[in-house]
């Protein structure tokens, strides 16, 4: 093979790459925070919330889980303006990620909630805690602990999936890579660099989530 690798462009385009990296990091940090919050709220509704609200959340979850992320993104960015809802590409990307993670997170967290024994609820209630208080103080943390590995994986999947936001010109890592390779014609090297950045980011994100779990859940308590 006579291919000669050429990375001489990196210096010139490092600013573009860093800018892309920053957007991807920002999207996943903010998106995961709100996405998980949305997921927890939806899981509460589906498992314990008012009966009339359950089918509504169910419909949202099934709609998102059975359509491609790219279409959801296009719907928000290209579709919503027809209804008068305008937003920039970054906001649209963030919103799509929150809505997507909210739906998958809902089902994951719900599994954790539903594995809670009846006795835990009854112990909370008989101490005088209301239903909401029992959920917040008694049920939620052990439920999250049970499903934390699955939820962490889903967050990483959303981070990797965020590569498609370059399709609406949100300037993330993938957008930067497209831009660089179209200027330098060094597609192979560019995507090797992009791959390594995503890889490093995913590994770091997993470690970060492990750390969050470390803080959130006591070390010695076995999930029951």
């Amino acid at each position: 093979m006579g291919y000669v690798f050429d990375y001489s462009w990196i210096g010139e385009y490092s600013g573009v790459l860093l800018k892309g990296l920053w957007l991807t990091v920002w999207l996943i940090l903010v998106g995961a925070t709100f996405g998980v919050a949305l997921g927890i709220f939806c899981a509460w509704v589906r498992a314990l919330g008012p009966k009339w609200a359950r089918p509504i959340v169910g419909a949202y979850v099934e709609l998102i889980r059975n359509t491609p992320f790219l279409i959801q993104l296009f719907f928000i960015f290209f579709g919503l303006p027809s209804l008068g809802v305008q937003m920039g590409e970054t906001q649209a990307a963030l919103l799509a990620m929150i809505i997507n993670l909210g739906a998958y997170g809902c089902e994951i967290v719900r599994a954790g909630i539903q594995a809670t024994t009846k006795g835990q609820f009854e112990a909370g209630w008989s101490l005088g805690l209301s239903r909401i208080e029992t959920f917040r103080h008694v049920v939620l943390i052990p439920a999250l602990q049970r499903i934390w590995p699955a939820l962490s994986s889903q967050i990483v999947i959303v981070m990797l999936g965020s590569a498609v936001v370059s399709q609406i010109a949100a300037e993330d890592i993938s957008y930067a890579a497209d831009f660089i390779q179209s200027r330098t014609f060094r597609a192979f090297e560019t995507y090797i660099v992009a791959t390594l950045i995503y890889l490093a980011l995913a590994i770091l994100l997993r470690q970060l989530l492990k750390g969050v779990g470390w803080v959130l859940f006591p070390k010695r308590s076995a999930a029951r």
């Binding site: 024994t117 006795g119 835990q120 009854e122 112990a123 209630w125 008989s126 101490l127 005088g128 103080h137 008694v138 943390i141 052990p142 602990q145 859940f217 006591p218 308590s221 076995a222 999930a223 029951r224």
Partner: peptide, 16 residues
């Protein structure tokens, strides 16, 4: 429930 406490067969301590 503020008047009566309850103890269960299965303890039901909060594991976390």
């Amino acid at each position: 429930r503020l008047k009566v406490g309850m103890i269960f067969q299965g303890f039901n301590l909060f594991p976390h």
